[in-house]
């Protein structure tokens, strides 16, 4: 059963909060405007595997959805977009459920 858009937003917020990715100054009001490039994912890059953390985060998000009874495509490539926001990530996940 697919998650609603708000549930997808809840997954994104809880995941990045729990894993310690939200940058200094993030609040419950502005969290969805945080840009992916501001969270320091794969920064600095590991030269021979520059997208390792994006891969792992995409898998974690897939697992979150599976445990909640849904399934979603890998967001690895979406996570490469540094100017994308967490709001857009939640919308992408919501739209890319199986």
């Amino acid at each position: 059963m697919s998650l609603s858009l708000n549930q997808s937003r809840g997954v994104v917020y809880q995941y990045f909060l729990s894993e310690g990715w939200l940058p200094v100054g993030t609040t419950t009001q502005n969290w969805d405007q945080v840009k992916l490039g501001d969270m320091g994912i794969d920064d600095p890059a590991l030269p021979s595997d520059p997208h390792m953390q994006k891969q792992r985060i995409a898998l974690d998000l897939q697992r979150f959805f599976v445990v909640l009874g849904s399934s979603v495509a890998s967001a690895k490539n979406f996570l490469k977009g540094k100017t994308k926001t967490l709001k857009e990530l939640a919308e992408w996940l919501h739209q890319n459920q199986a």
Binding site: N6, L68, G69
Partner: peptide, 21 residues
């Protein structure tokens, strides 16, 4: 998750998605 837990956590995530505060 059993069905009760599943509904509980989905409700919490719905609430968090609207306003985590």
């Amino acid at each position: 998750l059993n069905p009760v837990e599943l509904i509980y956590y989905k409700d919490l995530l719905e609430k968090s998605g609207v306003d985590p505060g």
